[in-house]
Design a protein around this nucleic acid. Sequence first.
DNA 1: GCCTTTATAGTCAAGGTGACTCTTAAAGGG
DNA 2: CCCTTTAAGAGTCACCTTGACTATAAAGGC
Lengths: 249, 249
Amino acid sequence: MTAPRPGARRPDGYDPHAFEPFAVTVDLAVFTVRDERLHVLLVRRGQEPYRGAWALPGGFVLPRESAGQAARRELAEETGLSGTTVARLHLEQLRTYSDPDRDPRMRVVSVAYTALVPDLPEPRGGGDAEHAQWLPYGSYGPLAFDHDTILADAHERVGAKLEYTCLATAFCPPEFTLGELRQVYETVWGVELDRPNFRRKVLATPGFVQAVEGPPRLTGGRGKPAALYRAGQATALHPPLLRPEGRQE
Amino acid sequence: MTAPRPGARRPDGYDPHAFEPFAVTVDLAVFTVRDERLHVLLVRRGQEPYRGAWALPGGFVLPRESAGQAARRELAEETGLSGTTVARLHLEQLRTYSDPDRDPRMRVVSVAYTALVPDLPEPRGGGDAEHAQWLPYGSYGPLAFDHDTILADAHERVGAKLEYTCLATAFCPPEFTLGELRQVYETVWGVELDRPNFRRKVLATPGFVQAVEGPPRLTGGRGKPAALYRAGQATALHPPLLRPEGRQE
DNA sequence: GCCTTTATAGTCAAGGTGACTCTTAAAGGG
DNA sequence: CCCTTTAAGAGTCACCTTGACTATAAAGGC
């Protein structure tokens, strides 16, 4: 009834040719906050199918690498960032998409990853169709393949993780103000948060952020200069920072 | 540098033979609560590698099915339950394991699923090595392949989801008492919960459970007979029901 | 009839939350 | 230079949730 299987109890002999070969790829949902809007890294397809449509960056998993290694390699290639820089970015497996018809050409199983990055300089060759570009979330037509679904799942996941992890600092540069951190929450959730309450909750969570000693200023904008903070060593938030009319998956 | 890729921007022509073929399987971490202990469904391997070791049930994804369909099919085969019964069980994708060396024979990428079931009758042919068996969580030696890792990840995920979803009812029969529901939390989390407080929180969450009209009793054990409840239509818990010294992923 | 066990009701103090106000320190415009 | 605008940051207050705890009710075992 079924092919032999690694790790199963079936008595059949093991035959490497008795299974259907699949292509395995990774797809990347890369988010950043730029100009107070959530942006996504996308590439324009130059061939059929979906020629001319936007798609998530990604690529094949190579013979000797794991899906996670493939994702980090693709992220470095698409953003033009150095390997050491990419190694510090937040990259997390989202889930795997395996509908038999998700690619009209052949059977492709794709492991999707979500990456969160601070506002980076425009990817190498900005504006060049050869490289990925930042687009405001939602500001594009339908994406190729099932990438709209993947991106929606990724957005939902990021929004949920902001509630109970310190993930928001991954969107920020090494040193940031509480206003910038609040911007992350407001941008991803699409809501406005009360400034004093946000401040109180963040500072009340040990290990979320830690104050930077230096001069308590960082100007360029209007208003009273804000103190600088660095990401703390905590990874989970207790208690969680729930969004106003919160839902979850 | 890389093979051509569906959904990417590369200008290369598309060549279905330029990628490495992978086998794609599903692995199942199936939990239940039996005799106040958390149990897992395992199969004993009858062949090398890991001959004689316990392993998670699972199998190949067939050419015309998605990973989710494969998982449900395998679950029906391993438990001996009917397709309609299995269709009602809670089944959820956990994550994908793709280390190049996770199977010594060949390249196998496995999509892991977590299933939660009420205390079922022993799988067909109970005690028969041909079929899966329930074992108390942790009561076995090292599992085959990376299945210890998968199972630990699944356990962590289930524990976390009990906090902010109505998942616990998936462990219970159609009608259950609040004591049984509390048993689920205590068993999965490995803690004791205060009865009155647990009751207050569950009943305060709209849509978590709904009272059954009938006679407010279900006896067989000691103590005052408990009222019966059914699972409500809610899926998320607001506010969450946090475990005592809670951690998360 | 007593003791044990479990369900269910109720109390209370501590702490977290949302909504708000007020002050301070900058930038920009006339 | 003054006044307005903007944002940071301090502080208040009523409400609600929470954990810890006490009390009562209803069953079974001896």
